[in-house]
Design a protein around this nucleic acid. Structure first.
Lengths: 233, 233
DNA sequence: CGACCATTTGATATGGATCAAGCGATGTGG
DNA sequence: CCACATCGCTTGATCCATATCAAATGGTCG
């Protein structure tokens, strides 16, 4: 990569420091100990746009944290259609799959930098450090939460799905009312279980009703958050 | 309850026995230490058909294990529709939600017996016993897996969803080729994001093509597993 | 037997898919 | 620097799977 931000290189993580600070059981906002461990132990890798990170069926042996860019996980169904599992943005951890083999493939949506760490290393840490173990659980629980939220999206109308997606992206992004989408219309369609045409039409319609603005096809300004939340039902 | 099978009552769980036996990282088939802990610590409670176990929005402070009967979790959407989150059968653990408050409600589908244990007790155990901590993670990961599988179902056709549901129930049940459904057509419809009419019509159609047999509306015989798997795409 | 509820079956409507074409931005070769 | 190919997106016309509305059937319990 050209502009490689130096990532703190691998090194032994101080472990067994016990429960240093109080945290409520269910604070999902951060999973810092694990995240720090990945920063310490992880190897920085760069992937080019559309480059494969791992493939459906391969053994699940690493954890990943996005540093820059964006990643999608996806699955090719028997009929050839593609279903996107999730989008991961900078700061997100992915690769936490339940089975021994990846149920989904992962690839870079745009040029991306990712930290990679072996699961076995994390599991060893977790056995010694309760904070890490709890983070591991939290991260999985958070992922579960996201998938459940999406499940609710998938039974709604096309407009509700698209609006729900936009609000989700806006919440995850930095800027409050502006979203820079790294993914194509096709990606969005495969994420929401719709066709590219329906996604496009919905965007146009939202523009017509002044709920959003589309300076470019990948940049979306949320004009009327309240109206959007109403449309998300 | 009338036929109350005696459940081993609460009692202190031996802890800190460390990693007694080897298990692969990803063995999701069992989570025995945690399951046993719930057996030891849990209070047996009985719920009647349609009785509320916990309600959407209430604090998430317990874990549950189904002893007999069946449980559904569900959510009432803004437009009044009901989405079912999951069905839990004997042996299943539920209540592992990510947030402080329940995103879903839970109720008994038929008369059910359930073990209830405080999450805080489990978390305390998990802090001392790595096996419990790992089980907690595994159980959450398994739940994640199930939800992801269902996500894939929800983007398919009505027939594929219904067949997928039947195969799932058959795998989880005891008898290989026969399923006794504890839930109504409406429950199934709300689980699959379909209408009750579509579910019913699909069942009739599967009967017509001799893929299944319907001795009663709640009892389903899988006549042709291979054909069903093909229909599930 | 009669009331009630779950399920099935029938007729019609519709949201989103599919098929098809046009448009705009980006990049390439002459 | 312009002509043109390519790719991602939008727009239009039609079709179809499933929802919706409506009614009949069947099973269960007092």
């Amino acid at each position: 990569m050209l502009t490689q931000t130096t990532i703190s290189p691998a090194g032994r993580m101080p472990i067994g420091h016990g429960a240093r600070h109080q945290r409520p059981d269910n604070d999902l906002s951060e999973a810092n100990d694990l995240s720090e461990a990945i920063e310490m132990l992880g190897d920085a890798k760069s992937y080019r746009r559309n480059e494969e990170i791992y493939f459906q069926g391969e053994p699940t042996d690493s954890l990943y944290k996005v540093i820059s860019g964006a990643v999608r996980t996806y699955k090719i169904l028997a009929d050839g259609r593609r279903q996107i599992g999730a989008f991961y943005l900078p700061g997100d951890v992915f690769g936490l799959e339940a089975r021994d083999d990846h149920a989904f493939s992962a690839e870079a949506i745009v040029d991306a930098k990712v930290l990679v760490v072996r699961r076995s290393e994390i599991f060893t840490l977790a056995d010694r450090d309760n904070d890490i173990a709890r983070d591991l659980w939290k991260l999985t629980a958070r992922e579960l939460q996201r998938v459940q939220d999406r499940l609710l999206l998938l039974v709604k109308t096309a407009q509700e799905r698209v609006v729900g997606f936009l609000l989700e992206m806006a919440e995850r992004g930095y800027a409050a009312n502006e979203v820079e989408l790294p993914m194509s219309r096709q990606d969005i369609a495969d994420y929401l279980g719709l066709t590219i045409e329906t996604v496009s039409r919905t965007f146009t319609q939202l523009t017509t009703t002044a709920a959003i603005e589309l300076p470019t096809s990948r940049r979306i300004v949320l004009r009327n958050r309240a109206a959007l939340r109403r449309l998300a039902s």
